[in-house]
Structure formats: C-alpha cells, structure tokens
Design a protein around this nucleic acid. Structure first.
Length: 521
DNA sequence: GGTTGCGGGTCTA
DNA sequence: TAGACCCGCAACC
C-alpha cells in the first residue's frame, strides 16, 4: 500500500498506512450508518468490542490489522405483516452461521412468522447497501484510538437490539412457560412504568443514527444518544421516556440514512411508531395524550423470548388486507445457509404501511440510491408533526466524500414549520448553510446566522439545527437590535457550538503533523 | 449454545 | 488481484 498524501488534514481512510493522531473522540455510535468515519477512545469498551446495533458478522479480509465486518441484514416476515400497534417484524439475525441457519430453518420454508395470525415466514432481508453488497464496517486499533469506518448505507430496517436478542436467548426457555412469564413480564413492566412516574429522570438511552453529538439536553437525552437502552429487557420504559421527548425530537436525526424510531423496544422495534401515527385517527399521539404511561401498549409490547416465533393473540385483523398492497421494492431474499446462496422472491411485498409508503414515494425529489434515505425514511413522517414550538431535533451530521459515487444525498431540505424571522428554513446541504426562503418571490437568502454553520472547509458537514433553533429562540428573548450585529451572533453561536458539542471539532482538528504511524496491536 | 476473532481456502469480476 | 464469502477452530461468555 502506498502512503497516502493528505491533501487535507481532515482526511483519513481506514486503509491508510498512516492516519492522523486524534485526541478528540466521537461518542460511540451503535447505529452508525452511511459512509462515516469515527474515532473512538482506545479504552472505549464498545469500540473494543467492535459492537454494533446492526447484525455484523466477521469477514475475513486477509488483513490482520483491520477487522472487517459485513452486515447480515435483518430477519423480516415474508408477508411483511404488522402488529396491532403498527410495528413490524424485524428480528436480529444470529451472527453464527449455524445459529442463523437454525433461526431461519432454511432447510424448509423458513420459520413461521412470529405473528400467529400471519402465515408468512421469517426470511432474511439481506443488506445490499454497498454497491449491492452488504454494508461493511472496518475497525482499526492504534495506540491512541480506535478507528471506525463504515461503507454503505443500510437498505433495510434495523434489527432488534443486540441486548434484546441476548435477553431472548437468556430468558427464553420455551413456550410452555410463556403464560407465566408473560404475566410476570407485564407485571414487571407495569411496575417499572409506575416507578418511572416517581423517577422521571431515570436514565434511558435512545438509539440514534450516525454520530451522536450531544448537546445541552437533559440527562435522559444524553443517555439516549448512547445508542441503546439501559432498561431491563422486559421493562423498558423508553417509550415513556421517548414520548416525553417527542415534542423536542420530532425531526429526522440524520440526513444520510434510513431512520427508525430509536426507542429500544423489547422485540418489535422500528417503523412502528411512524406507522402508528398514520393508522391512528387524527389527533394527538396517545403517548402524548397520556405521557405518564400507556397501559394499552403493554400487551403488545411485552413479548416472551420465544414469543418471537408465535404470538398468542391476534395482533392485526386487517394485516392480510394490508399485505395485499403491492408495491415495488427490493425483492426479499431467502438466504440458503446450506448453499450460501440468496434466493430472490420475485414478488412485490409491502413492508411499510401503504399510507407511509405513499408518503415516502410522493417525494419525487429523491436522489438517493437508498430506499431508506431521508425522504423515504419513516422518520421523515416526523416532519408532519413539526411545530413551531418544537421544530427540530437534531444533530444533523454528515461525513462523506463528495467524490464517493455511492453516497448520494438529498441536498436540500425544506422545513416550512421551522421559521426564523417568518422565513421558513430551507436547509441547503450544498454549502451546509441554512437559508431562508422568501415564499413570495421564491428567493432564497442566507441568514447572517448561518455563518456559524460554515464550519467545514472540506466535505465534512456538521449541522445542528437544534442549536440553531435554540439559539435563535434565545436571541428572540433579548433585544432584537443586538441581533443585527453579525459578530455578536457569530461569536455567541460559535461559542455554543464549541462548548456544547466538544466533539464537533473532532474531524476538523486533525493536525497535519500529528499522525499516528500505524501501530498494530 | 452463541458470539467473536482469526485464518485458510474458494470463487468471481 | 481484490473483494466477498465459506468454513473450521479456539477463546470466551
């Protein structure tokens, strides 16, 4: 390998013979997606374990210095059935080939769908997010840091969290004890939800996508950014916590990839929340109406480990009808572990709720090669819920090389509900500056505020709309005359960005003369 | 019993 | 030749 010439101090690649010595580290991202590069502390336990929320299996790349892993995708129902709460089946594939084979029972037609009312079967939705190949993760250890690089954008839902799978394995001893176990689990969950009323600050972690750039949020939100839930497997109250946070976080958390509700849910996670929002009659979300807890959700939320293979009760009477909807999508596949081949099923199946699907496909501006990019992401539905009071979540983060043909990203985002000086926010990723659209004449202009967002001088983009909006609100409290001074605005905002997001300067702080010669461990 | 890391080996573009 | 993938092994939990 030839030595790479660093034309830019920000740049490094996992395959470089020498990479920058980094003294500022990223927060561990369990659900890293898209083409991203992260630097973790050398003593980061998660990084040392090379853990990931995605089901990543070790791949031999014949390079002992760089650990490579490829994504196994997700186990989904062949009929894409939905539960009563709108959630769908998305199990975590076993990493071990043998265990995965057993999990799928691929010798026959696949294990039956966990939904007893569904006649579908579990099948692997293979990851094809990297040029048709699985998304790959690379880990490399140096003396000072652990470097992580991901290639590709996952084109499938997130599998259940690893902790959930482990809990199933640990606790699941058979369906014969299901009744009692479910009873206990429900009781425990109820007890915890009640307890949560007395302990509103209980830590709970949110699964986030991409890089977590923590800002001055509550303790809860900081835990959420860790990427996993600290709640017991059967007693997760993240839904409760999340509902409390929802008004603040109703916004896509990433520009680059498919997003899912980041609530660590026992066994059936992702899209559900979004789907539910379409299935429910108009009105406030139940969890918001009853922010304390949702007893109704308990029955559908708590599953016994072995419940993943059969549910006791009908979960969605109309699921069959819903599944009749034929919508073009990537063909589902069955992974034959015996032969190692992947069989495509040439039929169109609807994984998403039709309403959601329509919403997703209504956007003709999609330019991404991912089925779950921002526009198509279920989280995009959160845009519908944006209010002026709580317009944005987000630590929008994008790190990629513009020259990477694999990475195509929606360049512009228009947030009509997010206004500044009565102008809707129009986020232009071309120069990573927020613009404000004058709807009358269609002109777009750059606010003086936006200067603070021109942080990167390379392709790396860091955008934090939360801070932007917060700061704007902050400014509104004060004498507006002060806001006419660009310098004040810039300095204060710059201060906020640098003080509240210590890691934000990470990638941009690489020193040209500060490289680690590869230290192989 | 499952995860993880490692490494030999095959296949294909 | 590079990359994806299969497979077996060992250590660990």
């Amino acid at each position: 390998m030839t030595c790479r010439v660093y034309s830019n101090s920000n740049d490094w690649d996992i395959n470089d013979s020498a990479i920058p010595r980094i003294d500022e580290y990223d927060v561990f991202s369990e659900w890293a997606d898209g083409h991203c590069r992260l630097v973790y502390r050398a003593d980061s336990e998660e990084a040392k374990r090379h853990s990931s929320g995605w089901a990543m299996r070790n791949t031999n790349n014949h390079n002992v210095h760089i650990l490579k892993k490829s994504c196994l995708g997700v186990l989904v129902c062949s009929l894409r059935c939905s539960l009563s709460n709108g959630e769908s089946v998305h199990l975590r594939p076993a990493i071990c080939d043998k265990a995965r084979k057993k999990q799928q029972d691929s010798v026959t037609l696949g294990k039956p769908c966990p939904n007893r009312q569904c006649r579908g079967r579990l099948e692997i939705q293979a990851c094809r997010g990297h040029c048709g190949y699985p998304v790959t993760h690379f880990w490399r250890h140096t003396e000072h840091a652990i470097f992580f690089q991901a290639k590709g954008v996952h084109d499938h839902p997130k599998p259940e969290a690893k902790s959930t799978s482990e809990a199933k394995r640990t606790l699941g001893s058979g369906r014969r004890v299901r009744g009692l176990a479910v009873l206990l689990a429900k009781e425990a969950a109820l007890g915890n939800k009640l307890m949560s009323l007395h302990e509103p600050k209980r830590q709970c972690r949110e699964i986030t996508n991409q890089v977590s750039r923590s800002i001055n949020q509550s303790l809860v939100s900081s835990e959420l950014e860790k990427g996993y839930c600290s709640c017991p497997p059967f007693e997760c109250i993240c839904r409760f916590q999340q509902s409390m946070l929802t008004p603040i976080n109703q916004f896509p958390s990433s520009l680059s990839t498919y997003q899912q509700p980041h609530v660590a849910e026992p066994y059936w996670t992702p899209e559900p929340t979004i789907q539910q929002s379409y299935q429910n009659p108009p009105g406030p979300e139940p969890s918001i109406l009853n922010p304390q807890y949702d007893f109704n959700s308990l029955a559908s939320d708590i599953f016994q480990p072995e419940e993943m293979f059969q549910l006791d009760q009908p979960v969605k009477p109309d699921f069959v009808a819903m599944n009749q909807t034929e919508i073009a999508r990537s063909p589902p596949t069955l992974l034959d572990l015996g032969s190692g081949t992947i069989h495509k099923e040439f039929k169109n199946e609807e994984y998403w709720h039709p309403a959601l699907h329509n919403m997703l496909n209504d956007d003709s501006n999609n330019s991404s090669n991912s089925r779950f990019n921002l526009n198509q992401s279920p989280d995009s539905s959160h845009l519908l819920g944006i209010t002026n009071e709580a317009p944005v979540d987000q630590h929008l983060y994008l790190e990629t090389k513009s020259t990477d043909p694999l990475f195509t990203l929606q360049k512009n985002h228009y947030y009509p509900q997010c206004t500044i000086d009565n102008y809707p926010l129009h986020f232009d990723m071309v120069d990573s500056k927020p613009h404000f659209l004058d709807e009358k004449n269609g002109q777009k202009f750059e606010s003086s505020h936006s200067k603070a967002y021109s942080k990167s001088n390379y392709q790396d983009e860091y955008i934090d709309l939360v801070q932007y909006n917060e700061y704007h609100n902050f400014l509104n409290v004060y004498d507006t005359s002060k806001t006419n001074n660009d310098n004040i605005i810039f300095n204060e905002l710059d201060f906020r960005v640098n003080s509240c997001v210590p890691n934000i300067s990470n990638v941009n702080s690489y020193s040209n003369d500060n490289f680690d010669v590869i230290s192989y461990q």
